[in-house]
């Protein structure tokens, strides 16, 4: 889901960059000093997660862990994902520097959105918590795929085929992400609740 350079038109790139800057600014404002370690560690997890590849159809999907970053960080997912994507672009040649903004927005916005939608569920008992975290992992990925397809559509690709292709390619990854997010979140809620963005009752 890293969009390569030269695919998107300039307005889409600029728009994505602007949104990413806004998100990152909010995220940085919400990151206090105690939280920086969590943000950094999850940034590293996101950075490495992209190396776990699952070849499906013509594309090859990999773990994104956007949902996990969302449930754990909230708004701070933006700077976390931005840093990880920057390093992936520079060191792995995934995506590119011009598409950094739009890629960041496509990954981080669904993560943050899912966090706010499922926050009430996350704060409840263990089973609800797992369900909520699973939904976050699953839906963040789904929405990221839709956003990616939308950005491609804005640059001239037909929306439905590319959305369908992205969706089909990422269904198994969505499930895997949901499970990982679910277990990671319930585990952390048990052993280290202070590391989570949502208050645990």
């Amino acid at each position: 889901m890293h969009i390569s350079e030269g695919v998107l038109s300039a307005p889409v790139l600029l728009g994505g960059a602007a949104l990413a800057v806004i998100g990152t600014a909010i995220g940085l404002r919400k990151t206090d000093q105690d939280k920086i370690m969590t943000v950094a560690i999850l940034s590293a997890a996101f950075f490495i997660g992209s190396l776990v590849h699952v070849p499906i159809g013509p594309a090859s999907a990999h773990l994104v862990l956007g949902g996990l970053l969302g449930v754990m960080l909230g708004w701070a997912a933006f700077p976390s994902i931005l840093v990880a994507l920057l390093l992936q672009a520079v060191l792995f040649q995934y995506g590119g520097l011009t598409t950094l903004g739009i890629n960041t927005f496509n990954m981080a916005a669904p993560a943050v959105l899912c966090f706010f939608v499922f926050r009430p569920l996350l704060a409840r008992g263990t089973t609800f918590r797992f369900t909520g975290a699973f939904a976050c992992g699953f839906l963040a990925m789904l929405l990221s795929a839709l956003l990616t397809a939308a950005s491609l559509a804005l640059s001239g690709d037909a929306f439905v085929p590319s959305a369908a292709a992205l969706f089909a390619a990422h269904v198994p990854v969505m499930v895997v992400e949901g499970i990982i997010t679910g277990f990671a979140y319930t585990f952390l809620a048990k052993v280290k609740p202070e590391a989570l963005a949502a208050p645990i009752k």
Partner: peptide
């Protein structure tokens, strides 16, 4: 050839560094 160990470890090092700088800045402004 995909990213090797050098890139992976280097990237994690960068992350530590970047957030280290961030923590430093925050600790100074606070």
């Amino acid at each position: 050839a995909g990213p090797g160990m050098t890139e992976i470890v280097g990237g994690i090092g960068y992350i530590v560094g970047i957030f280290g700088i961030l923590a430093f800045i925050k600790s100074r402004t606070r």
